[in-house]
Design a protein around this nucleic acid. Structure first.
Lengths: 338, 338
DNA sequence: TGAGCAAATCTGATCGTTCAAATACCGCGG
DNA sequence: CCGCGGTATTTGAACGATCAGATTTGCTCA
């Protein structure tokens, strides 16, 4: 039994009114007299009528869809965030009555080719972009084309672009560091990425701020690339410096995983002998019971969809980008009583 | 400068032909005389015309979109596969000239509510579904509604439904086991999930088949839940049984991770002292340099899109479901020369 | 030269919705 | 009882593409 294609005409006929009246019942209910409205609404419910989005799109020149590019390549680290974010976008889309079209322009000439296609074919009328980087051609192209968009992640090097939301990495590390002190670790070291990465430097700043705000002097710190062996090696010396009863805040879950491995290699129990925290609350943070900082992807998705929606309505861009505070997820790796 | 909304009329006018001729140039080029075709094509290219998908949808009653439900909940294990699969779908969609609409019916009354909405509003005209389970109401609902769909993963308990593709887990474990023997490990044990899970039992069968086919007797085996501590505990005894120079094939990357940890705890170097393989080629398999079996998500995505496309054209369902062979990814964890 | 025919191209109608403008309705004062 | 102002509802047109059927073009052959 095929789901009947109930059109506005069917409803109009069944309710004994005109098509326009049915349309008004949905879009401008205040234009109808109460009894008419009720009658139409009940027929709509009875027949299960839903306006055809294709017809609405044609009429309004709006598709009600936002595009989101999924890149095949990308570090595991990145994917750990992008997938939950994609889910969050899809969830929040309903509330903004739109839907999400994912696309991937593998094998495209230019990075904007996929975007151009989607716009030309009128498949979407706005985009959410992620993984913006310095010199990213996408914001400029979208601006020039007059296509609304909002970015998950700061648009580096373009202070004039304010349609973005990002995670406050400094706040995340402040929370993690404060937590380590609060549960009683004597000293708080830091394992970060090599200096010069904007995100890494921001996270490190959070660790410094929380430490000094607590009236302590900075604990030992070390740097490692986003690689498990490198992290483990760096951590091995670092935990010796903080000693038993100390803890290490890390710039990522992978680095925290390195600390966990280094601790085990030494025969120390993570949490009891040495504490550690990561960032991103990735799948392996859960597996290894690592305390981590969970990115507020749902809040961000909602905010970004709201942004593009406002831009589509012709509203102005926001005053500035938005930073959202991540949430600490405590697990055994930062519990001295483990 | 807004991307101009070039319509078929603009092209027609510029080329000095009628709308229909322009349409034919794209849909039925053989109907045009060579010079006309070339003229029209060059104008199309010049103006950057792309047919409006909204208008096409309205006319054809086809949206050219397939829906894919993203579930917020779900084990980390599952997400490790679903994300690459989502990317693969988005990539392959271009080749089937359709696009992918992700949705999520968080807080829906019934599991089919989101599907019903998408169909009623004519947002998509088919679905790809994942995570089918025994008693899943979705296939039945979709069949009844006459909506084409194809499943990633067998439709358990419904042998009459053949629109699915899955990974041949037995083949994956055969390949992994054969590889372990080929590189010289003396004995091949197995760490699997508790009996009774269809996927787990199938993988175990692959290990048994490869072992007996090689003329050896089965190595030791153990079971553990999909939990790192449980896996590590089970693995600790297991690697003692296979001893140095032995190897363990595992039913999942997480279990292999447990073996890796157990080996390290014993002071053994993964790969050199004891080999291990996982399944899924998840992010942490890469991080830990675990040999794993990579699911052919791209092939499966392409096949499934092809399936729904055929169904939309009115074609018959396939004779049977399709199993695709995964690909072994060798890393240090199965290299005795590490 | 013109009839006959096929191939190439064009016009009309349609998909389902919504805006704008036109019409029907209603109560009230003259 | 008519007309007036205002509200409630209806009709016409349009969004852009494509199918079906009409029309034109181009060619062959009597």
């Amino acid at each position: 039994m095929t789901v009947s294609r109930v059109t506005i005409r069917h409803v109009a006929e069944a309710a004994g009114v005109s098509r326009q009246t049915v349309s008004n019942a949905l879009v401008h209910p205040e234009r109808l007299k109460a009894p008419t409205l009720e009658k139409v609404q009940s027929v709509i419910a009875e027949l299960g009528y839903r306006p055809s989005s294709a017809a609405q799109s044609l009429r309004s020149q709006r598709t009600g869809a936002v595009g989101f590019e999924l890149l095949a390549i990308g570090s595991a680290n990145r994917n750990e965030i992008i997938y939950p974010f994609t889910v969050a976008l899809s969830e929040m889309a309903i509330g903004h009555n739109c839907h999400v079209v994912t696309f991937s322009a593998a094998g495209a000439q230019s990075p904007t080719e996929g975007y151009e296609d989607m716009i030309r074919a009128q498949v979407v009328d706005a985009f959410i972009i992620a993984d913006t980087h310095k010199g990213d051609p996408r914001p400029a192209w979208l601006d020039k084309a007059g296509v609304p968009y909002a970015a998950f992640g700061r648009v580096w090097g373009r202070p004039d672009i304010t349609s973005w939301a990002d995670v406050d990495g400094a706040a995340g590390l402040r929370d993690a560091t404060n937590h380590l002190f609060a549960v009683g670790y004597a000293q708080g070291g830091y394992l970060g990425w090599p200096f010069g990465s904007s995100i890494g430097d921001e996270r490190r700043r959070g660790w410094i701020e929380a430490t000094t705000a607590s009236g302590r002097s900075l604990g030992p710190e070390a740097q490692a690339e986003q690689d498990l062996d490198a992290a483990t090696d760096a951590a091995y010396d670092l935990i010796e410096q903080v000693g038993r009863g100390g803890a290490i805040a890390c710039a990522s879950d992978l680095l925290a995983m390195g600390v966990e491995r280094a601790a085990r290699r030494r025969g120390w129990v993570p949490g009891r002998d040495v504490g550690m925290t990561g960032i991103d609350d990735s799948s392996y943070a859960g597996m290894l019971k690592l305390t981590s900082v969970s990115q507020p992807v749902t809040t961000i998705a909602d905010y970004l969809l709201g942004l593009v929606h406002k831009r589509l309505e012709g509203g102005p861009p926001p005053e500035s980008g938005a930073l959202f505070r991540p949430a600490l997820v405590t697990r055994a790796s930062s519990d001295p009583n483990t």
